[in-house]
Design a binder for these strands. Structure first.
Length: 306
DNA sequence: AAGACGAAAGTGGTTGA
DNA sequence: TCAACAACTTTCGTCTT
């Protein structure tokens, strides 16, 4: 995150942080430089070193899923006016008009986009926190002008995808694609773009995060599920997981685990819920058998059945 | 007949010159 | 910007249950 140190309009250094609204304002010309600031660190640290106040983020409680967050920028409140000399009034009014135009355009966009975001989010039954984060990301993207040249929907989808990853409740690109009606590769593209532009760090997604969801849609027992996680951990130790698609690995672990526990599912079934093909399952599955000597365990349950 | 397996060719994305 | 490359998919033929 970079902070503006000089006002781009008048090059003044007399910047003022309005904590109530989360804005940075140039005292010299009244320009709102950074609006609705967002920190992307996981743990909220001190807001800035100058005041060193504890847990100071923006003051007012706010939600990003309402289009203006109740924090719309208003240039020219009475109190502000008095802090400027009379000679600056004209400039000030001009700025206010300009600011107004910009902010209504942004807010119109946000209003639409956040409606779409809510729709997709509820379709996927995403937790509120993920939705909030996605809205935050989208808001930032709009302010940085990253939506230009892209469809609003795809940016929404990208923001949601990024948010899911950060909260370790991954959805596959396929699921996002189905929910939003945007092509998979398009989501991927905008996702990469906005995370790069906004400097959002994303942990590589962990296959373990997928297992619970896959297991429940396959109606597998809790034991099978935890066994799958166990297998997965071994696989990671054996370095079978790097570079591979996390969904394929999760799927293969589940498949093997289901075999061991006598809850056989076909490769087809597992492949479908994981959104990969049977072939991928087979490849991962084979690697798992080779590296982890699981054959005995499978044979054991086979004999039991007899 | 359905599922599992593997080979071969194709696709989209990343990387490095 | 292009070619090499790895992961994954599609398709299809064969084997197993």
């Amino acid at each position: 995150m970079h902070y503006v140190k000089k006002c781009p309009e008048c090059a003044g250094i007399n910047l003022f942080l309005n904590r109530e609204k989360g804005e940075v304002i140039c005292k010299d010309c009244g320009l709102v430089i950074e609006d609705k600031m967002v920190e992307f660190d996981q743990e909220w640290g001190e807001f800035d070193s100058e005041t060193g106040e504890k847990k100071g983020r923006t003051g007012a409680p706010m939600t990003y899923t309402q289009y203006d967050q109740g924090l719309g920028t208003e240039v020219g409140q009475k109190a502000d006016l008095y802090s400027f000399g009379a000679k600056d009034r004209n400039k000030f009014f001009r700025l206010r008009k300009w600011q107004y135009r910009i902010s209504t355009a942004i807010e119109r966009n946000l209003k639409l986009a956040l409606a779409e975001l809510k729709r997709v989010s509820s379709y996927l039954k995403l937790p509120k926190s993920v939705e909030e984060e996605a809205a935050r990301i989208y808001t930032l993207a709009v302010q940085r002008g990253l939506v230009r040249g892209r469809s609003m929907e795809s940016v929404v989808a990208g923001a949601l995808y990024a948010s899911c990853r950060r909260h370790e409740v991954p959805r596959t690109l396929d699921e996002l694609s189905e929910a939003s009606g945007i092509e998979k590769k398009e989501i991927g593209r905008t996702y990469r773009f906005i995370t790069r532009e906004l400097g959002i760090s994303i942990l590589p997604s962990n296959p373990a995060d997928y297992i619970a969801r896959f297991a429940s849609s396959l109606k597998l027992s809790a034991e099978t599920q935890s066994k799958a996680v166990e297998i997965l951990e071994k696989a990671q130790k054996a370095e079978l997981t790097s570079g591979r698609g996390p969904t394929g690995i999760a799927a293969a672990s589940l498949y093997v685990s289901a075999l061991i526990h006598g809850e056989k599912r076909t490769q087809r079934e597992v492949a479908d819920v994981a959104g990969v093909t049977e072939v991928t399952i087979r490849n991962r599955y084979k690697e798992l058998l080779d590296e982890l000597s699981l054959e005995k365990e499978i044979r054991k349950t086979k004999k039991k059945k007899k």
